[in-house]
Structures are given as C-alpha cells and as structure tokens.
C-alpha cells in the first residue's frame, strides 16, 4: 500500500510538472550539431576532364604462395571451394601487382564532391572478404553481405573513423554502414576467422582505384591540374608521384615496387 501511494504521488507530481509546460524541453532535439550549410558540390567539366592510367609492377623475386588453413571451421573449408592462399602480395604475369590502392592525395583541396548513391559491396564468401581492397567515399553506403553458411563478425579497425564490429549469421540481411571521415586505409578483419582480411580506403572524393590482376588502374573524369598521386600496398608500403593533367589528357603514371 505504501509503495502504491508513493507511486501515485510520483504520478501526481510528474503530471503536474508536465502540464505546466516543462515538456517543451523534451521536444528539443537532444544532439543537434551546429548545422552549417554544406559547401556546394563541385561539378567536373566533362569537356576538359582528363584521366590517369597506369600499371603497378612488382620487381624482384616473387614470394611463394602461402597456403592458408581454414580447417578450424570445417564449413569454411567446404564453402571456400579449393585451396586458399594468402593474397597479401598478388603478382601476376610480367610482375603485375594487384590490390594496390591508388588515389589522389593532394590537389583537390577545397572541392566538395557528391556522395555516390550506389553502395559499395563487401561480400563474405568462402570465409574470405571480396574484394580484398576497396575504396569508398565518405558517407557512401557500404553493403556488407554474408554469403556463407557460417557466422562472421566483420571488424573495421578504424583509427580516424569509429571502429566497430558486428556479427552476421548465415542468411542475415545485409548491413548498410558508412564511414564519415577520410581514412586510408582501414584494416578489416573477421573476429571469428583470423585469416580473413580486407582494407578499405575512405576518401572525400572519387579519385581512387584498385590495381587489377594485370596491375592496371584507371582514375577517370579528373579536372585538369597538378596532383599528388599516392599508392598504398598492404605489404609494400606507399609511394608518391606528382602528375599534371592537361585538359582532356589521359596521363600515364606507372608504379614499381622493388622486392627483396
């Protein structure tokens, strides 16, 4: 009885407080950031835009392919279809180096680029991240898919962005995540399968590419100007190149990593 009375008096007091209008406070947004008008989106003039293309090569003795043991999770062995190899240095014919991330690191200051509406996809398939290296723009949606019959727990170990991890079971719907700040690169792992690695480059512009199996890359639709082009590779480090693009020019920029 006493506790009932306490509850009741609590209600009387609180409803009295509410009816005097203090509830206005609750209606205010709690976390309103100081809103600034977004700077206008920069439009690239297609009449003058140029591009950069190039080949990434690896020079030296190609390290032997290192097999990866998935047998800790038998379902992974089955899902992977065939042998798994470490892909941290993927060298193809003629020393072509795949999975290098090439991007404009200087020369675009002050330009604000639109966020693409289409999502970038990371698929967890065969207990492997596909792709291994990818680029995405700030606030662009990343769809994370689990195509496997096992649970994964994707963990982008971001330093500038918020680091997070999230479990995704077999058949779970895709996650739709975003990174809000530029960061090159964010290492990604699976908390459950320690051989699973990927890297995400987050940029506030669209001028980036990942070298293909034949080592080639293309960065299109670039305004004429002088830029620093940076290449990142998970094992081989970074390199810079200055490059000037004249109107409508397709400029070449090759990179070479020297192995031991």
């Amino acid at each position: 009885m006493a506790s009932t009375l306490r509850r009741l008096s609590f209600l009387v007091v609180s409803s009295a407080v509410l009816s005097t209008g203090c509830s206005r406070k609750a209606e205010q947004p709690q976390t309103a950031p100081a809103s600034q008008p977004a700077p206008p989106v920069y439009h690239v003039d297609s009449a003058t835009a140029g591009s950069i293309h190039g080949i990434v090569r690896y020079q030296g003795k190609v390290p032997p392919k290192k097999p990866i043991d998935l047998s800790e999770d038998p379902a992974c062995v089955e899902a992977h279809h065939g042998k798994a190899y470490d892909e941290s240095i993927l060298v193809g014919r003629g020393g072509a180096l795949a999975n290098a991330f090439v991007y404009v690191s200087k020369g675009l200051e002050g330009k604000n680029f639109a966020t693409p509406a289409e999502a970038v996809v990371i698929d967890q398939k065969g207990c492997w991240f596909h792709p291994h290296v990818l680029g995405v723009q700030v606030n662009q949606t990343v769809d994370i898919i689990n195509s496997d019959p096992v649970t994964h727990n994707i963990h982008p170990m971001a330093a500038t962005n918020r680091a997070w991890n999230h479990s995704q079971g077999p058949g779970d719907p895709p996650m739709h995540r975003k990174f809000t700040k530029p960061e090159v690169m964010i290492p990604v792992k699976c908390n459950i399968h320690d051989w699973m690695h990927a890297y995400i480059g987050v940029l506030d512009h669209p001028y980036f590419a990942v070298s293909a199996e034949d080592g080639t890359f293309t960065i299109p639709n670039l305004p004429p100007g002088t830029y620093t082009l940076t290449i990142w590779h998970e094992k081989l480090g970074t390199q810079d190149q200055q490059i000037t693009i004249s109107p409508q020019q397709s400029a070449a920029a090759d990179f070479t990593y020297k192995g031991k």
């Binding site: 047998s71 800790e72 999770d73 038998p74 096992v150 649970t151 994964h152 727990n153 963990h155 680091a163 997070w164 991890n165 999230h166 479990s167 079971g169 699976c190 908390n191 459950i192 320690d194």
Partner: peptide, 25 residues
C-alpha cells in the same frame, strides 16, 4: 560464434563482452 566474435559493438557494450580467441575445437 556470436560471442567468439565479440558481439556487436555499440556505446553500451558490456565490459565482459570482447573478442575472444576460441578455436574451432
């Protein structure tokens, strides 16, 4: 598997929940 992966991060994740190394066995 959910626990082995460390659950899902969020601002109030319990301090007892962390990524733990558990072999398949």
């Amino acid at each position: 598997d959910f626990y082995a992966g460390g659950g899902n991060s969020n601002p109030n994740l319990d301090k007892e929940i962390k990524s733990i190394h558990l072999s398949g066995q």
